[in-house]
Design a protein around this nucleic acid. Structure first.
Length: 441
RNA sequence: CGGGGCGUAGCGCAGUCUGGUAGCGCAUCUGGUUUGGGACCAGAGGGUCGCAAGUUCGAAUCUUGCCGCCCCGACCA
């Protein structure tokens, strides 16, 4: 992509609305534009990152054997009246009347909808378990939206739902998602700690939050620091293994966010030298809530003994739009964002420092065509001063920078700069392709 | 929802106390000089001062009402 034809409205000054780093950098790098409180438009750079995260989450769901569907954003109130949550959910739920004055709502979550889909077609234990997910925009009319996309009213969420014949099988599904979540967050370059959590309005008795450590997080977290080590081998776990034993290892370490935290228990179980207390960002939450919805909504199947039973359900969320902010919170410096390679909007930032020098520009154009065949390249071909170019390419956080200056035509070398380490080296142009290929491994 | 703050050009702000018809920096446009870390000179364009009503000869400024946005707290992926 040539920068001269890319919509990238970067800001030199920080908009006064932003408080935390990720919000500031997302606005300054032209990723998002606020529409109203807690509601944002996603501009090209931001959308690219959002899609990358979405795709990684999707791939990991698919690997775990979950089926993707897509449910609507607008739901009929009737379903929620059936589950008796229509009144309970309160003002967080955006209620709408259509032209026939039917009561509708913009979905804050989809338990009712999925249960309705399930019950209309699955009738036998032989068809269980069923694991379904979708990635869709949600709306929760928060009392106070804040921190940009970290706590918006409209947000993109992956939510999955499991349906099992009994609580034992249901817990196996729960464990599957537990492992899946650890794998997903690891792929995103995040260290997510599973923590015992309250089940809140969704209900049930088994629940974990997945929280990444960050000073700007909204949750207070307490944990045994040895749990951090436990995640190291997570990518090696195969779903055919005994997942419960892996999950139990994590559960064996004390970890809790503020509402479940118990000081006495913490001191009793965890040696003082392993005790950790921090702030964290909740990026995922899983619930096992048994028959709470299936009973009231009559989602029943026939068991092998011919008796009709309510299915045991779980729901599993990942805040995809929130993850964009969360990743920035955990990966930035004073010059801007530092994207982990897997979610970076572009892999290579190709910067022509001498756009008015014909020879240098010729080299730059050729390198762009060459590299663009195999990599996502943002080519800064604009006629700005070098300083502007350097600060802009740093701000938007592209992991690898290729700086093309006068030496490109006089000595046939360009400069490589690693955004994360700031390390630079001169590369012969004839060798550049090779050099970049090696970065990829 | 309680407490606090803000709304003036695309962005960041001054001007409001003490009323006299709007200004600064950045950005944008034109010309020129620059070109390895947010350049310089000269010129130009851009604002019904959030909206409405009121007070006044006269309102960005005073009064009242409304709207929007942010921060702290209580609640949530």
């Amino acid at each position: 992509m040539k920068l001269s034809s890319y919509f990238l409205p970067v800001l030199k000054e920080t908009p006064s609305d932003a408080e935390i780093i990720s919000h500031k950098y997302m606005l300054r790098s032209g990723m998002i534009k606020q529409s109203s409180s807690g509601i944002y438009s996603w501009l090209p750079l931001g959308l690219k990152v959002l899609k990358k995260i979405e795709n990684i989450v999707r791939e990991e769901q698919d690997i775990a054997g979950v089926n993707e569907i897509l449910m609507p954003t607008i739901q009929p109130a009737d379903l929620w009246k059936e589950s008796e949550r229509y009144e309970d959910y309160g003002k967080e739920m955006l209620r709408i009347n259509d032209r026939q004055n039917r009561e509708m709502l913009y979905g804050p979550t989809n338990e009712e909808q999925i249960t309705d889909i399930f019950r209309s077609s699955i009738k036998s234990y032989k068809e269980l378990p069923q694991l379904l997910y979708h990635i869709q925009w949600k709306f929760r009319d928060e009392l106070r939206p804040r921190f940009g996309v970290m706590r918006g009213r409209e947000f993109l969420m992956k939510d999955a739902y499991s349906f099992d014949i009994d609580s034992i099988s249901s817990e196996e599904s729960y464990n599957r998602f537990f492992i899946c979540y650890l794998k997903t967050f690891e792929r995103l370059g995040l260290k997510a700690i599973p923590m015992a959590a309250d089940t809140g309005p969704i209900g049930g008795d088994l629940s974990h939050e997945f929280i990444i450590i960050s000073q700007t997080g909204e949750s207070d977290i307490y944990f045994d620091e040895r749990i951090l080590k436990e995640g190291d081998q997570i990518n090696k776990i195969d779903y055919s293994e005994d997942l419960a034993s892996h999950v139990n290892k994590f559960k064996s370490y004390y970890s809790a966010s503020d509402d479940k935290f118990n000081r006495e228990k913490f001191d009793e179980i965890v040696d003082r030298k392993y005790q950790m207390h921090s702030k964290g960002i909740e990026v995922g939450h899983i619930f096992n809530f048994g028959t709470k919805y299936s009973k009231i909504m009559k989602a029943n199947v026939l068991d092998s003994d011919g008796v009709e039973k309510s299915v045991h359900m779980g729901s599993y969320g990942i805040g995809i739009s929130r993850l964009v902010g969360a990743i920035i919170e955990s990966s930035h410096d004073e010059n801007g964002i530092i994207w982990p390679e897997v979610v970076a909007p572009f892999k290579i930032g190709l910067v022509n420092l001498k756009p008015k020098d014909e020879k240098v520009t010729k080299v730059a154009n050729e390198l762009y065509l060459l590299l663009n065949k195999n990599y996502e390249v943002l080519y800064d071909d604009k006629k700005d001063n070098p300083g502007v170019k350097f600060s802009r390419i740093d701000l938007i956080g592209i992991p690898h920078q290729i700086i093309i200056g006068s030496k490109a035509s006089s000595e046939n070398v360009v400069e490589y700069k690693n955004r994360k380490t700031s390390a630079t080296e001169l590369i012969k142009i004839s060798n550049l392709s090779n050099f970049i290929d090696k970065l990829n491994t």
